[in-house]
Simulated assay, not measured.
Amino acid sequence: MDQFIGIDVKDNGTGIPEEEQPFIFERFFRGNNKKHKVRGLGLGLAFSKMMAKALSGDLLLKESTQEGTIFTIQLPKKAPSL
């Protein structure tokens, strides 16, 4: 029996370049193409991953192509005991 529920979130953007993918969950990281064109602090994915971890889950990059990007949010089916 699988212990996690996975939720896929997909966009239809231009994708994340392969060389930048290892860094996307780091705080304040902004891709080279977005640094001067798009506003933001580079905290969204880092904060989202921290929230998933706080719920005993995870946020993963599943796939990124020129047609879009897919992230998977994994959350436990059963709440962790405190």
Score class of each variant (00 low, 15 high):
M1H: 12
M1G: 10
F4H: 08
G6K: 05
G6F: 12
I7N: 03
I7L: 06
I7Y: 13
D8E: 15
K10D: 12
D11Q: 04
D11I: 05
D11Y: 06
N12Q: 08
N12E: 13
G13W: 15
G13S: 09
G13C: 11
G15D: 14
G15S: 10
G15W: 06
I16D: 11
I16Y: 06
P17M: 09
P17L: 12
P17H: 12
E18I: 08
E19I: 05
E19K: 06
E20L: 04
Q21I: 04
Q21H: 04
Q21D: 14
Q21W: 01
P22Q: 05
F23C: 07
I24Y: 01
I24W: 01
I24D: 13
I24T: 07
F25R: 02
F25K: 03
F25V: 09
F25Q: 12
F25L: 13
E26G: 04
E26D: 07
E26W: 01
F28C: 04
F29R: 11
F29A: 15
R30E: 08
G31R: 04
G31C: 09
G31I: 08
N32R: 13
N33F: 14
N33T: 11
N33C: 10
N33K: 09
K35S: 07
K35N: 11
H36Y: 13
H36R: 09
K37E: 15
G40D: 10
G40S: 14
G42Y: 00
L43A: 05
L43S: 03
L43I: 05
G44H: 01
A46Y: 07
A46S: 07
A46Q: 06
F47D: 10
F47P: 00
F47H: 06
K49N: 12
M50W: 03
A52Y: 07
K53Y: 13
K53W: 04
A54H: 02
A54W: 01
S56D: 14
S56L: 01
D58E: 11
L59D: 12
L59F: 05
L60I: 12
L61I: 02
L61C: 05
E63K: 00
S64F: 01
S64M: 02
S64R: 02
T65M: 01
Q66V: 08
Q66P: 03
E67W: 01
G68D: 10
G68E: 07
I70P: 00
I70H: 00
F71K: 01
F71Y: 11
T72F: 00
I73N: 03
I73A: 10
Q74M: 11
L75D: 14
L75E: 14
P76L: 05
P76R: 03
K77C: 05
K77A: 04
K78H: 14
A79T: 09
A79G: 08
A79W: 08
P80I: 15
P80K: 09
S81L: 08
S81N: 08
